[in-house]
Design a protein around this nucleic acid. Sequence first.
DNA 1: TCCATAGTTCGTATTTTATCGAACACCAGA
DNA 2: TCTGGTGTTCGATAAAATACGAACTATGGA
Lengths: 99, 99
Amino acid sequence: MRPFLHPAAETLDLPRVLHALSDPARLEMVRRIAAAGELTCGALGVDRPKSSMSHHFRVLREAGVIRTRVAGAVHLNALRTEDIEGRFPGLLAVVLGGT
Amino acid sequence: MRPFLHPAAETLDLPRVLHALSDPARLEMVRRIAAAGELTCGALGVDRPKSSMSHHFRVLREAGVIRTRVAGAVHLNALRTEDIEGRFPGLLAVVLGGT
DNA sequence: TCCATAGTTCGTATTTTATCGAACACCAGA
DNA sequence: TCTGGTGTTCGATAAAATACGAACTATGGA
């Protein structure tokens, strides 16, 4: 399997991050990951086909919003809180707080 | 000509707003409007066909990011600063500050 | 080694978005 | 009322995003 792509913190692109967050499903995913700290795909509780979930994880990951690490048979996803906050201060508060 | 659609402040939708801002051209438009206070389409200085500009204005307007008012022969566009700030505090600072 | 579980990748269909020329609507001033 | 400047709408096309079944990879445990 291909290694995951995680853009460097300095190269995070605002339009790209905003686009990743502009999908309701992904926004919900981000909120749940933020609340839990680290989550596997399955533990998210979003009822969608695996391939769809995988797609959304990829968009978030390649925009630099989440980081995915392999832990045995599962993939753990965490918010790149510090990287995002360092580059776009305040953005996470908006996204995690907003209704 | 059809009247402009401006969603009520309370109905602003975060995913929709983020989507409107996730296009580099629109993000640039928003920054210039913010810097100038109020701008006509032509005064934006973005070198694109009029129909393309009109499209982007519409996306921003219908997401609730800008308000368009008719002043004689021109259309003046302004950021809906208070409405956005009221609903998504901190978002504008991120968008206007971020590189 | 076989099996179940977790998740990715591929292929494709569908939908949405972006782009832009051309025609149109509106206003102001000559 | 004609004309030039502004900007919108329409229509067509192209590009991008979404959705998801099926096949595949990788891991841990029986």
